[in-house]
Write a protein that binds this DNA or RNA. Structure first.
Lengths: 154, 154
DNA sequence: TCCTACTAGTTGACACGTCAACTATCCACG
DNA sequence: CGTGGATAGTTGACGTGTCAACTAGTAGGA
């Protein structure tokens, strides 16, 4: 495309395209599956998992945002939508008048528990079972290395 | 979460989470970089690349959609928005009154050429340089294997 | 010819994510 | 105190993506 730019070699290009294609297919399949089986978006799932991971299913906006590495405003929009569907609720924060808690509701718990059980089956079928245990471990190792590099070079 | 479900082992879980985390960081970094340097979304980029890959930079909606594996309606919305920004234009199709072409404009060509040059630098910095050549090749191989499995088991 | 089924593409409603601007509260320092 | 700057969270605008319903043109018979 331009000779002054160090373009990728044919082999690098193939690897890169495989990685991009994998991520597109994998995450579109996963979110479609989640939506179809449980009526949850990937965003809903992440929020609910983070809340069930914590005693009382209750977190400050701040802490929840940090936990799942989201921007405040994204979380605020998402919680508004999830509140309407009664998956979570808001609570005021006595210690800090600016702050607020997000709490998972009973319905939220039911939904996420059923969804997680189905989700893990799909992950196993689509991902874990596709590779040998050694290959999967190696993919994990390379992903971690690459992920750390990207985080570091931002 | 539920004993009747074959949950992932601790090691599988670690690998799986690394892969998810990689996906999130990689694509958010890439699209942010593309947006900041070239004013293009990932969607814009994909469309423009597909058009430059073809003589005359002209494709039927159908063929373009197939090329980049998008739904018709997604493409239709995207082309409407890109037309407004004069990156592409529509042309009627003489052979088939229902059909239409998408053509890249001169401005579209300028933009994508500049963007691609910058993009490849980022891909190299963020991805290729993070791993040894052997590791990168192995990641490509595993990605291809997994991607094929997912495509097959849909 | 005309009817029907199919195909190409569009549209509207709604969920999602980002950015920038905004409100309300807290807190540290004079 | 009280005031200015930082912090917590919200909001609106806009680009994006999906789904389902729609329009318009094509094609293959009876």
């Amino acid at each position: 495309m331009n000779d002054t730019v160090p373009w990728l070699s044919a082999e690098e290009q193939r690897s890169w395209r495989s990685l991009v294609r994998l991520h597109q297919k994998l995450f579109s399949s996963l979110t479609a599956d989640l939506q179809a089986r449980s009526g949850l978006s990937g965003a809903d799932f992440e929020v609910l998992v983070a809340l069930t991971d914590v005693p009382e299913g209750r977190l400050r906006f701040q802490d929840l945002a940090k936990e799942i590495e989201w921007e405040q405003s994204r979380l605020s929009h998402q919680i508004r939508r999830m509140t309407k569907r009664e998956l979570v609720a808001r609570e005021e924060c006595a210690e800090d008048g600016r702050g607020a808690f997000v709490v998972i509701t009973g319905r939220g718990r039911e939904v996420i528990e059923a969804a997680a059980a189905k989700h893990v089956v799909t992950v196993r079928r689509l991902v874990v079972d596709a590779l040998t245990p050694d290959e999967f471990a190696e993919l994990g190792r390379l992903s971690a290395k690459l992920g750390d590099h990207i985080t570091g070079s931002r």
